[in-house]
Design a binder for these strands. Structure first.
Lengths: 193, 193
DNA sequence: ACTGTTTCTTAAGATACCTTATGGGTACGT
DNA sequence: ACGTACCCATAAGGTATCTTAAGAAACAGT
């Protein structure tokens, strides 16, 4: 099992001692997920926190009209999960689907709670993670309420250039909150200028 | 100085012992802020974390066209601050302005960091706070990319009924990402039905 | 109580974005 | 290697939201 990227990731935030590394190795389980497979579906309770080793995921929800809306993508060294469902232990409204064949590391909610009690350092680490995620979401909210779709698309490309050749325009459109047809028009306009 | 609401607030998340209460009383400072006064302006580094005892604030940014966009409101028992600037110690792009005469409790960044080291329980508390904030922002992102302005307004009223008689429609429109004129049209339509 | 400022509303014309439909190209599973 | 499903582009007509301008009502500071 390959926990090295995860341990490196934690080390960058706050260096781990050996005992903490052992815990990580013991309680994060590697799992392979095929393209199109779900690691969470609406109605299920999110019982794992997931770290992506390889591959790509999207998290989305389906509105009353049956339309999908992407909330987040996750590639190597990103976290993904429905925090809301995870914490409240309520049925999730979200889907998390592998966009590519992927490899992930997962920790069970129960084990993560023990982690927080037995190794307090992880409270600091996960606080930092949550705060970083907040900053990202706040940034996205700023974009959503103040920018046009074209500006949002350009910002998306600048912010996540890794996604450009990896995620279809349909998925990007869904993330930006526009129809694929309109994104196509935007791309045409950008190409011309 | 009235730290009781803050201690009650912490106790609800994770009960504090006496030593921790003393720390809170020692390091959170009460401050009175008049209507229209700023506790943070663009260009400043956000050096405090703020808890609202009384009154109401709005946090906003100004886009390249000079337009204001509200990111968040905060009333009694809410936190407010530019986390991004607070953590990175970079100049903020945001303004935080008192909408009413207000009373707040503030802790300096330095003291909050000591708090995390000396009283690890606060790592858990602030991790929970950050996670709650994430859930809220995620919810708002969902709304932004999938709902019409009318739906967003109705959801806003349902979620924050306290704001209805307290915050002007201009401020609500800015929070929702629409013009005041259009919000006015929405309100007219809702009133009819 | 007065006065200046801010707020809310209305309306007309403009722009951003959506819906539906269609066709050609490309990638995936077998 | 094949067929099928998916992806991307284009276009026409429709809806949501913005811009500008103006007036009436409510409010804040003195």
């Amino acid at each position: 099992m390959n926990t090295k990227p995860l341990i490196d990731y934690f080390n960058k935030i706050l260096p781990l001692d050996d005992e903490e590394k052992v815990f990580v190795e013991a309680f994060f389980k590697e799992r392979r997920v095929k393209r199109r497979q779900f690691i969470l579906q609406e109605g299920e309770i999110c019982m794992h926190n997931t770290f992506v080793l390889e591959g790509c995921f999207r998290m989305y929800f389906i509105d009353d009209k049956g339309k999908e809306h992407n909330l987040q993508f996750a590639v190597e060294n990103w976290w993904i999960g429905d925090i809301s469902s995870f914490h409240a232990e309520e049925p999730s409204k979200l889907y998390i689907e592998a966009v590519e064949n992927s490899i992930i590391l997962q920790i069970k909610k129960e084990d993560q709670l023990n982690l927080f009690v037995d190794y307090p350092k992880f409270n600091r680490i996960f606080r930092v993670l949550a705060e970083n995620a907040m900053v990202g979401l706040q940034q996205r909210t700023i974009q959503n309420i103040s920018s046009t779709a074209e500006e949002r698309y350009l910002d998306f490309l600048k912010r996540y250039p890794q996604f450009f050749n990896r995620i279809s325009n349909i998925q990007i459109a869904s993330y930006l909150g526009v129809t694929p047809e309109f994104l196509s028009a935007i791309r045409k306009k950008i190409a011309k200028s």
